[in-house]
């Protein structure tokens, strides 16, 4: 006998309080990798015991761009590529908030690439979680700036001849103070990584390799999403502190995961406040942590 569709689950999922359960079911395909990254993020939030009223999530457009919409936080689903500058406005408008950007590879490093490098350069105090599925999923599997050379996409039907980004190297060379890469099957390690990153300041970048089960996998005949998740996990070598120049990802090749950068450097706001205090002294009026709003 099958279960009637509206029968309540016997027990609430442990991360249900972190999600907008009234928006379930989500839009992601079966065996998509994004869901486990959301689970790791929610678990990390729980473990850090941060005040969730002070955590804000901002996404751009695309499959991963839908994450903001499912998190039970103040959440912004913005324009394609602009999650980082939108989040910058929030951070500078109310500095006390922990602002998390959660989006995809095409969104953050294709159309949003300029914002990505400048936010890293400024050491803007944002945690950026980027799910890299090597392809534009929502629009139908087109070539991305991360598509491995020779992989097929719907706009490179004869194989990609471009060279993809090495994202951890890009982030690190632009000034990110925390840089990691995991796959979506490194549940425990990714959760710990996010938890650590939530305790740091500055531009923190976590790349998560995940399968696009519907498009990337099918266009390249790589089996189901589960096959691909397992492949990524089993073909990743953990090398903490690896030289980020060595983190390129070849098509169906082994690649390196780990925590590569974890440095402390003053953030944009630290530098701005220290600088104005030095040059203006008592004349400097710092924007209060709760924001520069004027109200009755």
């Amino acid at each position: 006998m099958s279960t009637p569709p509206n029968t309540p689950l016997p027990e609430e999922h442990p991360i249900a309080p972190y999600l907008r359960m009234d928006r379930m079911p989500h839009i992601w395909c079966p065996t998509c990798g994004i869901g486990t990254v959301v689970k790791c993020f929610a678990t990390a939030l729980e473990e850090t015991q941060l005040d969730l009223d002070k955590v804000t999530i901002v996404s751009g457009i695309g499959c991963t761009g839908r994450v903001a919409g499912y998190m039970n936080l103040d959440a912004f689903h913005t324009t394609h590529g602009r999650a980082i500058p939108f989040a910058t406005g929030i951070k500078l408008g109310r500095p006390e908030l922990e602002v998390v950007v959660f989006s995809g590879d095409g969104d953050l490093t294709g159309i949003g690439g300029n914002h990505f490098i400048h936010a890293a350069r400024r050491n803007m105090d944002l945690l950026v979680i980027l799910v890299n599925n090597f392809i534009y999923g929502m629009t139908g599997g087109q070539n991305a700036p991360t598509t491995p050379t020779t992989a097929r996409s719907s706009t490179m039907p004869f194989g990609n001849f471009e060279r993809p980004f090495n994202l951890p190297h890009l982030a690190a060379s632009c000034g990110a103070t925390f840089v990691s890469r995991w796959t979506c099957l490194h549940i425990r390690r990714l959760t710990k990584c996010i938890r650590t990153a939530l305790g740091r300041k500055g531009f923190r970048f976590i790349e998560v390799i995940a399968p696009c089960s519907t498009l990337y996998s099918r266009l390249n005949r790589l089996g189901s999403g589960l096959d691909l998740i397992k492949f990524y996990h089993d073909n990743s070598e953990i090398r903490h502190g690896a030289d980020t120049r060595e983190l390129e990802i070849g098509y169906q090749d082994s690649f390196v995961c780990g925590n590569f950068v974890d440095e402390e450097r003053p953030t944009f706001l630290d530098l701005m406040n220290a600088h104005y205090e030095e040059v203006l002294g008592d004349r400097y009026v710092r924007m209060p942590p709760e924001g520069g709003w004027i109200h009755e």
Partner: peptide, 23 residues
């Protein structure tokens, strides 16, 4: 707070985000 952004796309995005802080 004034910030000189990397382009006008970013400027308008930052302003739209900033408004939601009440500022």
């Amino acid at each position: 707070t004034f910030i000189q952004m990397e382009d006008e796309l970013a400027s308008m995005a930052a302003v739209t985000g900033g408004v939601w802080t009440g500022t």
